[in-house]
Design a protein around this nucleic acid. Sequence first.
DNA 1: CGAACTATTGAACTAGGTCAAACCCAGTGG
DNA 2: CCACTGGGTTTGACCTAGTTCAATAGTTCG
Lengths: 233, 233
Amino acid sequence: MFVSSQLIEIGHDTPHAAFPPLHPLAALDATAATICFDKDRTLFAEGDPATYCYRILGGAVRMVKQMEDGRRQVVEFLLAGDLFAINAPDHHSLTAETVIATTVCRYRRSAVEALADRDPATARRLRALAVAELGQARARLVLLGRRTASERLAQFLLEMERRAPRGGAGRVVLPMGRADIADHLGLTPETVCRLLTGLRHDGTIGTGRGIDGAEVMILDPDALAALATAPRH
Amino acid sequence: MFVSSQLIEIGHDTPHAAFPPLHPLAALDATAATICFDKDRTLFAEGDPATYCYRILGGAVRMVKQMEDGRRQVVEFLLAGDLFAINAPDHHSLTAETVIATTVCRYRRSAVEALADRDPATARRLRALAVAELGQARARLVLLGRRTASERLAQFLLEMERRAPRGGAGRVVLPMGRADIADHLGLTPETVCRLLTGLRHDGTIGTGRGIDGAEVMILDPDALAALATAPRH
DNA sequence: CGAACTATTGAACTAGGTCAAACCCAGTGG
DNA sequence: CCACTGGGTTTGACCTAGTTCAATAGTTCG
């Protein structure tokens, strides 16, 4: 769904013509800036003019909708390789914050739009990206609207395994804290905690801490997959 | 699987060349078919190849994600004027069903894609549409993830008022039943009912039945708007 | 070591769900 | 014209998944 390249490119790339572009904006890499952020920085806030869009080289970002009274919804997490803020209206409707120290490649949206107008292939790819994001968002609607807490967490772990694998075995990096996970799944941090404890107790997962945050080891993928679609508490 | 029964081909549109295009696919109206469906018909099901896309001339459609065990999420309702299934992957990930008797204008997606490739303006409009849908979906994520039952219903009524006004006053047509509303808001039909009764009791709304389904009269828009963002039960 | 977090665990509570009965029509048929 | 049927809607009584509140335990960093 998200473009995920394992490569870590730093600085201004000069892609070899021999290689196919690695991501839809490769043609603009020469004009893109590489920027590093600390943990918990705001890349842009709701209401800001959407001047730039971003590709994550390393780290993690959360897209957040903040409510007046403090309730929060983490609309999505973005990981290394992910492109974001391309398919946005001209003023952002979400806030983007780093979860941990993060390096991004920043593109000027006007340049992207110009490229899309002149190159139908790019236009098609950007639309395909929007369609993919839309599909993701809708899948998440079902998650929040109709699935139980344990189904949500199990699906989240499996999704993270797919997107942020660490080594071959079922090792998953969770750079975000419990509160972020809770705000992503429409739960409370306490519930997330209890569910994780339950899974650990059942021998379905193991937990520990790695270099970039907590890690989860999926010990029984089948059990987890079963939980992800079973209404059972 | 397409078009099970009770469909009537009405013919091909003959748009007046003198008028500016009223919607992004106006250029294709000459090749589009107008089709009528009964209540509760399936336009396409999850997994079907996405051969066509649609514009609603009259009626209402629900986009549904059906789960193995019978739970359902109504991802969105589509009303007269709405365009849908354009920004879809090549196989549908949702089922589209009519809520009431509905007339649609059907376009071949291959023709739409071809138009987009040759005309950057159309490509831009389609992408803008995808971006708008994405924004909608994300707003709904917050609704399902972080808002209470009464906030959800109040917001739904206000949204329907905006989209399906009837006459000048706060009169809203609700072509769909309680179960559909519940499956849209992540609630049960009973809860929807109780909330509506509560609102009627408070004098915030009035309910009755019109020609095309139930109607709600918004008597106190301010109270409803307040409810839509207040966590209070 | 101590401050400031974040994670974990426990106990009590409640929003909303579940189950079940009553109600209200619209349509059908006598 | 009225009774009958079958679907959705409404209401009530009870229940539980998940929240809330509160206390404890790691972890990180100075």
